Amino acid sequence: MSAAADARRAGARVEEVLDRLADSGDRAACAAAEELVRVLMEFYGAGLARITERLGAPALAPLLDDDLVASLLTLHGLHPDDVETRIGRALRTADAPVEPLGFDAATGVLRLRTAPAAGSGCGCGSGAADTTRAALEDALACFAPEVTGVDIETPPPPAPLLQIGTRPHTPARVP
């Protein structure tokens, strides 16, 4: 299993434990667990900040394409790239044929445009669109967690080409 998958699984496990504590009704235990998670995040964030300072930008650059490293740097506010650059990296990583139309920082919504699937004819793209959306959302969660929603616009398929030909010449009938 990859490090990124392990990290996602660990994050999900933390959420499960916190949810279980919240469901228990023991407010003191729930508050203590949440404080512990916050303190550990601060502790590891401080260590990560020191590592990034000592490495410097040139040594850090090759690590920015790793989804786990990028996610940790972003989570702790240490990623050197702005949100637009990280969105671009996520779109390249997802390898989805989309064009960014804009990101609204206030709502967290990223607008994208994709071309209709080649040869689909109907322009509905139902299965492909779901797969594309899932790949995009996974990549954006790692590289640009500020994106909380994705709107994908699909232009209508082009109108079919109308072939106009000439009719064979037939002599006019005389009545």
Rank of each mutant, 00 (worst) to 15 (best):
L136P: 01
D81M: 09
Y44A: 10
V39E: 11
L48H: 12
R54E: 15
C30D: 03
R167S: 10
A22Y: 10
A94E: 02
L161A: 15
R89Y: 08
G88R: 01
F143S: 01
V37Q: 08
L60M: 07
E146G: 07
D104T: 07
D66P: 01
A135E: 13
P145N: 02
P97M: 08
D6H: 11
C142Q: 00
P62T: 10
P116L: 10
V69T: 12
D66F: 05
E137V: 08
T131I: 04
G125K: 02
L91M: 05
D81V: 01
A117F: 00
E53G: 10
A70F: 00
E15H: 06
S2H: 03
D151C: 04
A28H: 11
A31M: 12
G121F: 04
L60A: 14
A105R: 03
P116K: 06
P80F: 14
T114Q: 14
A106F: 03
L64Q: 06
T170Q: 15
R111Q: 13
V147E: 00
P145K: 03
G125E: 00
L91G: 00
L161H: 08
L162G: 02
R92G: 04
A4G: 11
L55V: 13
Q163R: 14
P116M: 09
L78T: 08
P116Y: 13
D23K: 14
T93D: 05
R92Q: 13
G102C: 05
A134F: 14
A105Q: 12
R89P: 03
E42V: 12
A22N: 11
L110I: 01
V147R: 01
T52M: 13
A118R: 13
R27I: 07
T114E: 14
L21R: 04
L18C: 10
T93G: 04
T93F: 10
I51E: 11
T154S: 01
R133H: 09
H76W: 06
C142Y: 09
A128V: 14
R50F: 06
I87F: 09
P157M: 07
R86W: 07
G25V: 04
L75G: 05
V83G: 01
L68M: 14
T114C: 11
A118G: 11
E84C: 06
A3R: 14
L36Q: 14
C124R: 15
R20I: 02
P160I: 07
L40P: 05
P156T: 05
D67V: 12
G119D: 10
E15G: 07
C122W: 05
A117V: 06
D23R: 15
L60V: 05
F103Q: 00
H169A: 15
T166E: 13
E153T: 10
R133W: 04
S71D: 09
L68C: 08
V150I: 10
H79L: 09
A5P: 00
L78I: 12
R20L: 13
L68N: 10
F43N: 04
A128P: 01
T132L: 14
T93Q: 09
A141H: 12
V98M: 06
L162K: 09
G25D: 06
E15Y: 04
G125D: 08
P158D: 15
A29W: 13
A29E: 09
L112M: 00
G108P: 00
S24D: 13
T107M: 07
I87K: 03
P80W: 08
A70Y: 02
P62N: 07
E35S: 13
L48P: 09
G77C: 08
V98N: 04
L91K: 00
T170D: 13
G123S: 06
